[in-house]
C-alpha cells in the first residue's frame, strides 16, 4: 500500500502562492507521516498558465535539501525540454537527493506549451505520442550510460573513471539524435523513478513497458479496476513482473476522505495505493496534515511507506537498471 501526495502548485489561482518555507514545512510533515512521495505539478493540463513562483524541477532540488526520506517527484513535459537536458537535470536531482527523485512525464500535449516553445502548429496526436515514446526511451538509456563502478577516483594511477564503463548512446531516431553519454554520473537509483499520469488507452503500452508508477483516476472505480488489470497484464506480457508497475489511484480531496470507501476501492480495484491531489493553499495543506493524515494512519492507509533509503526502496521497485 503506497501513498503519494500531489501538490498542485501550478493551479493555486486567486490564492496567495505558497512560499518555499511553507512548502518545505508541509513536505516535512508528509515525510514524518510516512508518505512515500510528494509530486510537484508544473502546468495545468487544460492549458492555463501556472500560478506558482516556482518551476517543479528547481523547487524539488531545494526541497531535497530540507528532507531526508520522502520521495520527490517533479513534472516535466517532453515539449518544454530536450531529452539530453532533462536526463541531466533528473540524474543530478537524484544525486542531490541521495536517490529520492521521480520524473512525472506528462503524456498529454499542452497547446500552451507548443505555442510558447516555437511549435505553434503543435504535433498531431500520433506524432506527439511517437515523439514522447522516443524521448522517454532516450532518457532512460542516458540514465544508465555510465556503468556501475565506473568512477575509480584513482589519484595515484591518474584514472578518474574507467573508460570501458562509459557508454555512448548513439541514438538516431525519428525526432531526436543524441550521441551521449550524459555528463552526470550514474545516480543512486540507477534511474530516477518514472511516473506517468493519466495515460490514454493508446499510451498503455508505453506505460506498462517503461513506467514504474502509473497514476490513474480513482473514479469511476470500475474504470480504475480495468486499467489496473490491463496495465499489469501488458507488463507481464512483455516479461516484466506485474508488481514492478505500481498503479496508484488519483483522488482529488475536496473534503475529508471516507476511509471505508478508500479501503473498499483498494480491494476492489487491485491498485497499489493512492495519489491524493491537494490544492496548494495553506489552509488545505493544514487540514490535510492535521485531520486527514492521522485518520489515514489510524486506518493503516498511510504510514507504511519509506521502507528504505531511496524512492525505489519505498515503492518496492528493485533496482533501476542493469550494467
Amino acid at each position: 500500500m503506497h501513498l503519494a501526495v500531489s501538490l498542485d502548485i501550478a493551479s493555486a489561482a486567486g490564492k496567495t502562492s505558497l512560499t518555499l518555507a511553507e512548502i518545505a514545512g508541509f513536505v516535512r510533515k508528509l515525510e514524518t507521516a510516512g508518505v512515500d512521495m510528494v509530486a510537484i505539478s508544473d502546468s495545468w493540463p487544460n492549458g492555463a498558465p501556472s500560478t506558482s513562483p516556482f518551476e517543479a524541477t528547481t523547487l524539488v532540488a531545494a526541497l531535497a535539501t530540507f528532507t531526508e526520506k520522502i520521495g520527490l517527484v517533479a513534472s516535466a513535459s517532453t515539449l518544454m525540454h530536450q531529452p539530453y537536458n532533462l536526463a541531466r537535470r533528473f540524474a543530478s536531482l537524484d544525486i542531490i537527493s541521495h536517490g529520492r527523485i521521480g520524473w512525472n512525464a506528462t503524456l498529454r500535449q499542452n497547446p500552451r506549451e507548443a505555442a510558447n516553445f516555437s511549435r505553434p502548429e503543435g504535433f498531431s496526436d500520433d506524432d506527439f505520442r511517437r515523439r514522447a515514446r522516443e524521448f522517454i526511451n532516450i532518457v532512460r538509456l542516458l540514465w544508465v550510460g555510465w556503468g556501475r563502478g565506473a568512477l575509480l577516483f584513482d589519484k595515484a594511477a591518474g584514472r578518474f573513471h574507467d573508460p570501458d564503463k562509459m557508454h555512448p548512446l548513439n541514438h538516431i531516431g525519428e525526432f531526436f539524435s543524441v550521441r551521449g553519454p550524459l555528463n552526470v554520473a550514474r545516480s543512486p537509483q540507477d534511474r530516477p523513478v518514472l511516473i506517468m499520469s493519466g495515460p490514454a488507452e493508446a499510451d498503455f503500452d508505453l506505460a506498462s513497458g517503461a513506467a514504474d508508477v502509473v497514476l490513474i483516476e480513482g473514479q469511476p472505480s470500475e474504470a480504475l479496476k480495468v486499467a489496473v488489470g490491463e496495465l499489469k497484464r501488458r507488463a507481464a506480457a512483455i516479461g516484466r513482473k506485474p508488481e514492478t508497475v505500481k498503479v496508484l489511484a488519483t483522488m482529488v480531496l475536496t473534503s475529508e476522505p471516507d476511509a471505508d470507501s478508500l479501503q473498499a476501492l483498494l480491494e476492489s480495484s487491485g491498485c497499489d495505493g493512492f495519489n491524493f491531489v491537494l490544492p496548494a493553499d495553506a489552509p488545505g495543506l493544514q487540514s490535510f496534515t492535521d485531520r486527514v493524515l492521522p485518520e489515514l494512519r489510524r486506518r493503516g492507509i498511510a504510514g507504511q511507506g519509506q521502507q528504505g533509503a531511496t524512492l525505489r526502496d519505498h515503492l518496492g521497485l528493485g533496482t533501476g537498471g542493469e550494467q
Binding site: 528547481t58 578518474f160 555528463n183
Partner: peptide, 23 residues
C-alpha cells in the same frame, strides 16, 4: 582515454545544483 584522466566528464547539472544551494 584522455577524458578518463580528468574529473571533467561528470558533475552536477548546474541549475539543479544552484537550486539546492539557494535553499
Amino acid at each position: 582515454n584522455i577524458a578518463s584522466q580528468t574529473s571533467r566528464s561528470i558533475g552536477f547539472e548546474p541549475i539543479s545544483l544552484l537550486s539546492a544551494l539557494a535553499a
